[in-house]
Computed example of a mutant assay.
Amino acid sequence: MRIDAHQHYWRYRAADFPWIDEQMVQLRQDFLPVDLTPLLAGRDFDGAITVQARQSLDETAQLLQWAESRGKADAVVGWVDITAADLARQLETLRHPRLRSFRHLVQDEPDPARWLHQPAVAAGMSELQRQGYAWDMLVTWRHLPELTAFAARHDAGWLVLDHLGKPDIARGATAWGEQVAELAAMPHVVCKLSGLVTEAPEGRWSAAQLRPFIEEALARFGPQRLMFGSDWPVCLLAANYDEVSQLLEDATDALTADEQAQIWGTTAARVYGLTGGESGSVFKR
């Protein structure tokens, strides 16, 4: 299976997407399954993981409807308030065969480190992992130490590092590798090779600049804990779909066929429990 493990849909209303500022003109429009399907087909993808872009239960429900409109290899990373006292009830209401993970926009919290250490977050994470859900982790490089401690506390299921933890491109891949080393050593943590083109200063990137980060990720996580994600349509701020895909194609062309298959779909199928992949936790139970 070939899976795009990170992309978004939305019907654009400015009030719903405060993170899309006036400079992001490319994103101030609708992006729907009908727009993504030909892009996936052009790169021989079998499916995609749709990830929440706003913190709304209504959005999660809509994403599930859109995922159902496509093939069996599509799934959703939704949102729920994991600090809610009635979280178990909300999860029961949301329960759906396409809902495989959740995410919170931790990077946008006033104090991400403090958010990660809340007792209510810990209780919510325990409930999510008890019910078999993965958790996508969205922070920048500034809070990777706190995220590492968070991951060590929550080791009962898959944790997914989005966009390599948004590395500081200017500091270089070696510095990022050292920063992420402890997190990458945890067997329940996987990483998405996604979002790099928009982390380059002002979106001005080159393959020579970004390829070392992919190589460092391979060294730290190994292909069995890496997955491709286009981050479409956010990637359009710096590159089109084919350019993002080709960047990783070129960076992984020396790997074995099995190693490439891990990155291009097997890891995502395993972590998100997609048809044709081994679902469930990294731990034998």
Rank of each mutant, 00 (worst) to 15 (best):
G203T: 00
D44S: 14
P167V: 04
D58T: 05
L94W: 09
Q55P: 00
G42I: 11
I82K: 05
R70K: 14
A261F: 08
R153Q: 06
A53K: 05
A175E: 07
F221G: 10
A149D: 09
H104G: 03
H8I: 05
E199W: 02
R100T: 03
K166Y: 06
W264C: 11
A113I: 01
V51K: 13
F17Q: 09
L40P: 04
A181M: 02
T148D: 06
D58I: 05
Q107M: 08
G276V: 07
K284A: 14
E243H: 07
E199A: 01
G71H: 13
Q55D: 01
M227S: 04
D168W: 03
R171N: 12
H154F: 10
H154V: 01
R285C: 14
A85P: 06
A251G: 03
R285Q: 14
D231A: 00
M125P: 02
A254F: 05
R43E: 13
L161K: 14
A185L: 06
G276T: 03
A181C: 07
L164R: 01
S56V: 02
F221S: 11
Q65A: 10
E249T: 09
G277M: 10
H6F: 09
A184C: 01
P233E: 09
D21V: 07
G165N: 02
A48V: 02
I3K: 11
I169L: 04
L248M: 08
L247H: 07
F102P: 02
V160H: 05
Q55A: 09
G280N: 12
Q260Y: 07
R103T: 01
D16S: 15
A217Q: 00
Y272L: 13
V106H: 11
L159G: 02
G273T: 02
I20R: 13
A5M: 11
A14R: 15
V34A: 15
A181F: 03
M227K: 07
A75R: 10
Q107P: 00
P233D: 11
L248S: 04
P112F: 06
A122M: 08
T267N: 13
G277H: 11
K284N: 13
T267M: 10
S281H: 08
V197R: 12
H8S: 14
A254I: 13
T174V: 14
W158H: 05
H154A: 05
A219S: 12
Q90R: 13
A53L: 08
Q224D: 05
Y9E: 15
A261T: 04
D111K: 00
L164C: 11
R142K: 15
D258S: 07
L138R: 14
G157S: 06
A257I: 07
L144I: 09
Q65I: 12
H143R: 08
L63E: 01
P233A: 10
A53G: 12
